[in-house]
Design a protein around this nucleic acid. Structure first.
Lengths: 340, 340
DNA sequence: CTGTTAGCGCGTTCAC
DNA sequence: GTGAACGCGCTAACAG
């Protein structure tokens, strides 16, 4: 039988209240008594029943998610996943509140973090815009004992507890490797479409992509990066322009706004050999894969990211550890053949 | 405030015991009373607190995992993941017992299922050998109200509750698609090494692979399948033989025993262009990827499969539903560039 | 058929 | 500094 507080109280010769004080690191216990209790805990191999504790406490984890109000499918999916988690959250003693902020806006994010802090939640998850101010705001949350997790895009130089997102440099390298192999020995120009160089995930993907292309596929030339602002119309115009280049062999779209990419490709027709790799699986990109307009889509599972962020925030909030492997967000590679 | 049994008791004008009987579908309640209670539940939007219920019941989920005592890395990893889950299981009111059976042996598996059944556990997970006897044994478990999940390889024609594994036909198609594209327009022979055609996962991978090669890469010819029995030495000999074929352009190893595959490839040297794709990421295959001996590795996350099986078994055991997306096991594609 | 009561393992008042 | 008693939401005897 699993030992309970009663067993350790008896073993240590003290009352339940004292056990509780030791367990919750509250003051008012003689050092000697505390030592006796701790010894009993160790000897009996007691592990606290969190479910019972939460029941007794009437504990509920209040979580704040700060999400950019971006107009692209991926962010829409992310918001939907957070809402889905929120809708089943009462079952898990969790209350999730969503704050929407303008995208690519460090000041707005800093302000939102401050608002969240004043609510004294158990934890905060946010899609980081990489800036000094944001890092400082995140550190203030940490100082207040609020668990923090960055979501999708990480934050440099802060004390956030965890990053729930993919290794974006590896994603860029993977895209380059796939494209290089798909093109075999063929040479030519590669166009890269990014959203904004202000977010760390896009920068990292680009760096990874460039490193592998330069090191391993010297016959391919990277054209100057096109900044599409994650906006379909902008992306469409940029890609349409790039398609005018007769030497173009490949396109790597590392940001959002793929509706524009796909429209431009469809308009151009699939006559010439062109390897196209994009990010994030949506209805649009899945259809484009099926049609052969896209060759591969790298994806991060938004549902997994959200569930992982919640697990980590809850665990941190009560000082528990997590299963590292479960919280690692994979880079999913989708071809036409392994669509869900 | 979340409604509790007290609220619905008051609303329906009955006592807690009656509520409990209705909630747990126990007999001994007037149809009219039952209806009143159910109405109250619906009106108040009551959702039962499983944690509290389990606490009161002193419930513990007893789970049996039946695993083949195979000597390859993947099965070793799978067993390790089950043991890891078992070691943290007491925290989750779960007791996991492992039964090892000889691999590819339907009779032994049938017997093990029967043994498990007599223990009356909450649920049973097993790596299926695809046979009629096994299906019948699984159905007997279902009849006894024991939740059943197939792990890694599925079982045809049975009432198992869930399959925790990848879509192996899609995996085969993906391998073919990658290989075809890596080889570009180059033609040649493709060798396929399988473990055994007795397990459904291997058969499905082969069918998927063949379908895509035949439909889309007519310049590639599939050689007769080599059965390596998932045994490194056997695989090594078979692959060494196949490498004598000067027209060989690719190797697809869809089973285990990749230590042998890799040894044979290393011995042959990497002089000629050869596209090699294997299954399951292990230390061995990861190193082979880094060296360029393998081009891609398709993987199923054993840890995810085990955790998923446990979640599903527990949920089924108390009639709960699961988050479908969370239980979908992905086909992970690893290149040198996205190794963990 | 239905209600009463005593816990499950733990946290939190209050007295002592 | 320490202990006893009650309650969290639910279940399980046992009465009625």
């Amino acid at each position: 039988m699993k030992p309970t507080v009663h067993d350790i109280a008896e073993r240590a010769g003290v009352s339940l209240a004292t056990i509780d004080r030791v367990l919750n690191m509250r003051p008012g216990v003689h050092a000697a008594t505390r030592a006796r209790v701790e010894a009993a805990i160790a000897e009996l191999g007691y592990v606290r029943d969190i479910a019972a504790a939460n029941l007794a406490k009437g504990r509920n984890y209040s979580l704040v998610f700060i999400l950019p109000g971006n107009d692209n499918s991926f962010m829409a999916t992310l918001r939907a996943e957070v809402r889905a988690a929120a809708s089943r959250s009462h079952l898990e003693r969790t209350a999730i509140r969503i704050i929407e902020v303008p995208p690519f806006n460090a000041a707005a994010l800093t302000e939102a973090l401050e608002v969240a802090r004043r609510e004294k939640p158990s934890g905060v998850a946010f899609v980081a815009t990489d800036s000094q101010d944001v890092a400082e705001a995140a550190d203030r949350l940490a100082e207040d004992g609020i668990a923090t997790v960055t979501l999708v895009s990480d934050l440099s130089g802060s004390r956030r507890d965890h990053y729930a997102g993919v290794d974006n440099a590896a994603a860029g390298r993977t895209a380059a490797s796939l494209m290089g192999r798909f093109l075999s020995s063929r040479g030519g120009d590669i166009a890269v479409v990014a959203g904004s160089m202000l977010v760390r995930d896009h920068r990292e993907r680009l760096e990874g992509f460039r490193a592998v292309i330069e090191a391993e596929f010297p016959q391919l030339r990277l054209l100057p990066v096109l900044e599409g602002k994650d906006d379909p119309a902008t992306v469409e115009a940029l890609v349409a322009g790039a398609l005018g280049n007769v030497a173009l062999s490949g396109i790597y779209s590392l940001g959002a706004g793929n509706r524009g990419l796909i429209r431009a490709l469809r308009a151009a027709g699939g006559e010439r050999p062109l390897s196209v790799i994009a990010h994030e699986l949506t209805e649009n990109t899945a259809n484009a894969l099926r049609e052969g307009v896209l060759d591969a889509v790298l994806n991060q599972d938004a549902g997994h990211e959200v569930r992982s962020a919640i697990r980590v925030l809850k665990a941190r909030a009560d000082g528990q550890s997590v299963i590292a492997a479960q919280e690692r967000i994979r880079i999913d590679i989708f071809l036409r053949d392994n669509l869900p």
